[in-house]
Amino acid sequence: MRHDSAITAFQQKRGGEAAAFFAPFLAPRMRLLDIGCGPGTITAALAEMVGIAIGVDIEPHPLAAARQIAAPSAATNLSFVEADMTALPFGDAAFDAVFFHAVLYHQGPAALTRTLAEARRVLKPGGMLGTRDADVGGNILYPELEGVRLALELWQRWYEHDDPDALRFGRRQSSILRAHGFTPVWAGASYVNHSADAASRAEAVADARRSLLGLGPQLLHKELATNEEIEAALAGWDAWGCNPDAIYFRCRCECVARKP
């Protein structure tokens, strides 16, 4: 995943929104672990709600961006650790809360089992787990231009899901967490609005173009797309962005569970 300055800035504006559903379950003295934190924008928002917030990610590049974000705030309760989410470098019952944002959706069955087992291990009995993840079946798009639909399909191809239900992961979070030893206590959904006004539509188009151009060579290399498809997808987003009535609401399903 790419974490250039423009993408990080976009995510930074969304950090508080992404964590809002978990806020009622947090308290000032809690220790929280944000697993798969990426550039740390959500971790920084969570740090304002708890006593200590630690973000972990296996990739050093986004962690460098995370530390740059944290530096100006001089927050003493915020830190980042390079680590594998399936082998966390923390003791048992070390945290009061664990958070996943747009992470579990990408896991195959074996990795998902290991990841949730580690989350359960480091969480205290009675501790809270918050998850927020994608569900493409809930996305709202208008107009449904062929090029934009193709772009969304190309991103789905990139993840190479073997399980057709994976694209609707979000709505199944409660049952998945229950199957892995957690007790769900709340479920909901929200939308990332990429079309509130002309500026946000332009930002969405620019972000889509960066993503498609960045993934393009890899999609071609893996024979997951053709040059013609990538060009059609780019043209579709350009046309979408020129429509003053265009909307794109991206669905995010949310779940809160407790460790028994």
Rank of each mutant, 00 (worst) to 15 (best):
R178Y: 13
E144H: 08
A27Q: 14
L167H: 14
W237C: 04
L88V: 07
G170E: 12
T41Q: 14
S200R: 06
A198E: 10
I7F: 06
A44E: 03
A166V: 07
G138M: 03
A87R: 10
L213E: 15
A44R: 13
R171H: 10
R250P: 01
E228S: 14
E48L: 11
K259F: 06
V56P: 05
G188Q: 05
Y142M: 09
V148P: 07
T76N: 02
G214M: 09
A97N: 01
R149S: 10
T113M: 10
A75T: 11
Q173M: 15
R67L: 09
G40L: 02
P125N: 13
F182Y: 03
A74F: 08
A6E: 11
A204H: 02
K124V: 09
T115S: 00
P125I: 06
Q173T: 08
T113K: 05
T43L: 06
P217D: 12
S190D: 15
P62F: 08
R250E: 15
A239H: 02
T86Q: 12
E231W: 01
G138N: 04
A257G: 01
E160S: 10
F80I: 04
F80W: 06
A196M: 12
I140A: 06
E229K: 05
V50I: 13
F21W: 13
V148D: 05
I58V: 14
N243S: 09
G38H: 01
A71K: 08
Q173K: 08
A64E: 15
L123A: 10
F99T: 00
F169K: 10
E153A: 14
G51S: 02
P28K: 07
R132I: 11
W237E: 03
R157Q: 07
Q218A: 13
A208W: 01
G16P: 14
I247W: 05
H221D: 15
A47E: 07
L145H: 03
A64D: 13
T183I: 08
Q107W: 00
A71H: 07
G108I: 07
A20G: 11
K13Q: 15
A27M: 11
V256H: 00
M1E: 12
R67D: 14
C253V: 10
D162P: 05
T115E: 04
G138T: 10
R14S: 05
F169S: 09
H61M: 00
L215N: 12
D84L: 05
R168L: 09
A179I: 03
